[in-house]
Computed example of a mutant assay.
Amino acid sequence: MEVKQLSLGPLGTNCYILHDKKQAMIVDPGGDAERLKSYIREEGLKPIAILLTHAHFDHIGAVEDISKEHNLEVYLHREEHQWLKDPMLNGSKLFGVTAPITTSEADHELNEGSLTIANWTFEVFHTPGHSPGSVSFVFENDGFVIAGDTLFQGGIGRTDLPNGNHNQLINSITQKLFTLDDETIVYPGHGPETTVGFEKQNNPFF
């Protein structure tokens, strides 16, 4: 599996395109739909699903456009299904850095455990704290995790936003993400990639 990162939307959210040079899963299309469409077209990829680590506005800005363009189903934790339709819950009305965002309902509820989409099987970790429905996607055989806004290089996700919980966030990282192999690459929602081992040793929050 190959991982392509694009920085999209008003806050430079990391969108990840996971692909095998043919089919692709899109994680957190935060905005700039035309740029994302161009990449998909230029690479000759066939998108098959949209995965959301959580439903804050900067992670969902291009969901409606991309899902309709490619007839894609959207996967999101059940705790945040209402956020897609509510600009107050997803923060787009609260922050005012973009027009209020509403999208269609998600097609699938993400739950902790194994998930298979097409030829790919991976683990979903429920990692609340930054938001109640935050999840991380663990591709153990490929040696990486997409952690959304839970863990960053040298930092952790904000918990001062509505529905944030600092203790939950710390538990999500220490009890789940830090159980992965130290060599596991962490692809965060913002900023550069890191590894589990590096964050265990160097992250000032631990």
Score class of each variant (00 low, 15 high):
Val63Leu: 09
Ala49Gln: 02
Leu51Met: 15
Gly61Thr: 07
Val63Phe: 01
His59Val: 06
Glu112Tyr: 09
Glu73Val: 00
Ser67Trp: 01
Met88Arg: 15
Gly91Trp: 07
Ala33Gln: 10
Ile60Phe: 02
Ala62Asn: 06
Ala33Glu: 15
Ala55Tyr: 04
Glu69Lys: 08
Thr102Gly: 03
Asp58Glu: 10
His70Thr: 00
Lys46Phe: 14
Thr103Pro: 03
Val63Glu: 09
Glu80Arg: 03
Gly61Asp: 09
Glu69Thr: 09
Trp83Ile: 07
His70Ile: 00
Ser104Val: 10
Tyr39Ile: 12
Glu73Phe: 00
Gly44Met: 05
Glu42Thr: 10
Arg35Thr: 15
Ser92His: 13
His77Ala: 04
Val63Gln: 05
Thr98Val: 12
Phe95Leu: 07
Asp58Ser: 11
Asn71Cys: 12
Ala49Arg: 07
Glu69Val: 07
Glu79Gly: 01
Lys68Tyr: 08
Lys68Trp: 04
Thr53Ser: 06
Glu79Lys: 07
Thr116Phe: 12
Ser67Val: 06
His54Ser: 05
Glu105Pro: 09
Asn111Phe: 08
Gly44Leu: 10
Ile48Pro: 12
Glu42Trp: 13
Ser114Thr: 14
Leu36Ser: 12
Thr116His: 01
Ala49Ile: 07
Ala55Ile: 05
Leu45Arg: 04
Leu52Tyr: 01
His108Pro: 01
Leu89Phe: 13
Tyr75Asn: 02
Glu79Trp: 00
Gly44Pro: 04
Glu43Trp: 09
Met88Val: 15
Pro47Arg: 09
Asp65Tyr: 00
Glu73Trp: 00
His81Phe: 06
His81Asn: 10
Ser92Lys: 13
Asp58Phe: 01
His54Gly: 02
Lys93Ala: 15
Val74Pro: 08
Asp65Gln: 01
Thr98Pro: 00
Trp83Thr: 08
His56Gln: 11
Lys37His: 15
Ile66Arg: 02
Ala55Glu: 06
His108Ser: 09
Ile50Thr: 06
His70Asp: 04
His56Tyr: 13
Ala106Leu: 11
His54Pro: 03
Phe95Gly: 00
Thr98Ala: 11
Asp107Trp: 01
His59Cys: 04
Asn111Thr: 01
Gly96His: 11
Ile48Lys: 05
Met88Gln: 15
Arg41Pro: 13
Leu36Pro: 11
Glu69Gln: 11
Gln82Glu: 14
Thr102Pro: 00
Leu110Ser: 06
